[in-house]
Design a protein around this nucleic acid. Sequence first.
RNA 1: GCGGGUGUGGCGGAAUGGUAGACGCCGGGGACUUAAAAUCCCCUGAUCCUUGAUCGUGCGGGUUCGAGUCCCGCCACCCGCACCA
Length: 835
Amino acid sequence: MSERRFNPGAVDGRWQARWEAENTFTADSGSPKPKSYVLEMFPYPSGRIHMGHVRNYTMGDVLARYKRMRGHEVLHPMGWDAFGMPAENAAMEKGVHPGGWTRDNIAHMKAQLKRIGFALDWTREFATCDPEYYGHEQALFLDLHNAGLVYRREAEVNWDPVDQTVLANEQVIDGKGWRSGAPVEKRKLNQWFLKITDFADDLLEGLESLDRWPDKVRLMQENWIGRSRGLEFSFSLSDGTRLPVYSTRPDTIFGASFVAVAADHPVAQAVAQRNAAAQGFIAECKRGGTTAAEVETAEKLGFDTGLTARHPFTDTQLPVFIANFVLMDYGTGAVMGVPGHDSRDFEFATKYGLPIPRVVGRSTADADAPLAEADTDDGLIVNSGFLDGMSVDEAKAEVIRRAEAGGWGQGRTVWRLRDWGVSRQRYWGTPIPFIHCAACGVVAVPRDQLPVVLPEDVSFDAPGNPLERHPTWAQVGCPQCSGPARRETDTLDTFVDSSWYFLRFASQPADKPFDAAEVAQWLPVEQYIGGVEHAILHLLYARFWTRALQRAGRLEVAEPFASLFTQGMVTHETYQLGDGSWLSPDQVRRDGADWVRISDGLPVTAGRVVKMSKSKKNVVDPDAIVDRYGADAVRWFMLSDSPPERDLPWSDAGIEGCWRFVQRAWRLFGQYDAVATGEDKALLRKAHQATAAVAQDIEALGFNKAVARLYDLANAIEKAAPSASRSEAIRTLLLLLSPMMPHLAEEAWAELGENGLIADAPWPSVDPALLAEDEVTVAVQVKGKLRDTLTVAKGADTAHLQELALASEKVQRSIDGAAIRKIIVVPDRLVNIVV
RNA sequence: GCGGGUGUGGCGGAAUGGUAGACGCCGGGGACUUAAAAUCCCCUGAUCCUUGAUCGUGCGGGUUCGAGUCCCGCCACCCGCACCA
């Protein structure tokens, strides 16, 4: 008899075709079944699927298939986050059109996804670069505009003075343009903004209801929104003007030793008008990038304006600086510097020789304790007149009270969250549907003229926005006065595209973005899965959009994602030649304990295990793996071993192990015997326990634990003698692993003589009577150290356990005649004898 | 710099404050085979005076009858920081 082998090359495609032909995974909005919306973050069509996608989509797929087995109508859609910079970069580098490049990538990646057998509803697929999609997005943008949530103002961008173009943060490397190498400048442009700050309070409070989100993500969003209560007050300056400042630490007001304003603060501008050196310093601040990380890691620099500010309590005159670490768009753009209790102020004061008084200590005795660094801990106020002895919180309230009573300041809540700048000076994005008319100002494109479609005939031979230099596209008649006008040439941030795509998946009428009632059938998303890198921006923007659309009267859903899961990355070892150049895993081989390049035997250094990335070449192509091992082995690997929220190290040995298990499972299913007789209660118990545990693990997305359970059950079945129970256990195992290995499962299911698809089969039921063990192992400790174990009937009483424990020879040897002080008994678990 | 996270055998990891190392990978030994592949069985944290004992969950303290788990203080690495998606 020839050996029984599973051949995925012959089997996988057959079942994929059958699922497609039978519309197995098409979601029916009209179904009476309970509904589950399982969603993974849709991919950017970069060209090829990578292992990170496979891991993400496999997790969602197992959950979607499991929910179907549990009788749910499941919506599990897929689409493409298709706008963005890489398409324009490809256009510049390879001379291809961004649209064509994107379409080709989508076609290729879709074929790759189909080979892995995901239970996706492809009938709802779309790409955000489809005019139908972005046309609806333009309509929603107009809705938000009508709701008063869209406005224009000046904001800073990274400007490359050589290429004459706006740069994204990632295109700025060490303060220089990535192509030109020229030092980047900050420049102000008129740009479109969405009023996310209108919802700051609501977005913050809403986090409390998201009890199925990771705490860390809620915390990150909370910190990002950053509500703080502080004091706004004005200093009287020596030139007779007043300078409003904001501080979250009014309790430390007696520790202020200087005042600092942002480089673009009016006071700084005024000083610069009469002082060339100040002008030079401000120009200096304009150099360098705009990111928070750059601003905060840069050396703290200041320029003494010569002005002084009168301290409201002590009447001391404090020097006023222009400082590079003060931000114009937080608070009032001016701060009181308290070096003793703020690390940035400390660094600044140390550099410029300013006094560093202590005004907070652990106790009032700390008043003269020296400060080696800023002390930002809680404590009691010292050296502060009437505040002395108060706690930080009491002092904050007291200072605010006195400021309000004296009429020179007031308590104010300030948010770290800033309004969302959505303008991008780029071609490959959703055109912003507005027209600039010299006579009428900024005018919305009439709705019957949507979508505003991107022109196809654009060139990328020059830097800057192709829409701006297109000969005709922007020229248009004003909708109001019909006079000559110009289209807005900025496009929308791609985060806008991904802020409502999950609504369009749930409902896609032709004449409007979505139907509110149909959306309400599916939303909120039952399980959303994606990378932590989206923990703040994408997820906050999507939460904001659903609220904004609700205010605009479009939607009845507040929180879009009921449950969130952030999965870890797929990592791989890295390989480098002596000259530092990177090699891909298929260019190297093991040579004893060392690594060498296959082509010429040059020695290779195997380096750290890091996220798979093109730049380090440590990528493994999913297609190649599917070719070799089939879809089920890859899926199994993605679920095995590593907990889903942690990184998953790819290894050849690991996938080999999965492949062996695929074959082992296949042989096991071949041993199903429909006419076997006899009962094997222990095995039956194991099967029922596994059914309950795997269900629980899948629902908690603990796939690695579910996999371990399935190995356990397979091991037990292999050891068991043939019986009716064994056949039942085999059938149970098949059902339990069908969401993970759907192709093998369908094939084996058919072989068992079942008519329907296993994808449509119900999850096996659990007999609670079979779950409980009748015997337990109880640990016996002496002074907390394990000395023996006892096997007893479950539920044995305390006295009996104590007696058995003391009867143990090993225990008696450990006690060694010492007096027993205490015996702790935990029923069914342990006895601890304290001597 | 600020915010968030992670740390357990050779490796990935498991473990409601109660037997640390389930399950898998690697490795070792054996069976089968002319041979190999495949498959099956056994072993596999470290150390030692090996019928057993001692040590062991990044490091240093603490709480507890009992700590991987709770508390305090460190270290290392990873992720995010608003125009990458």
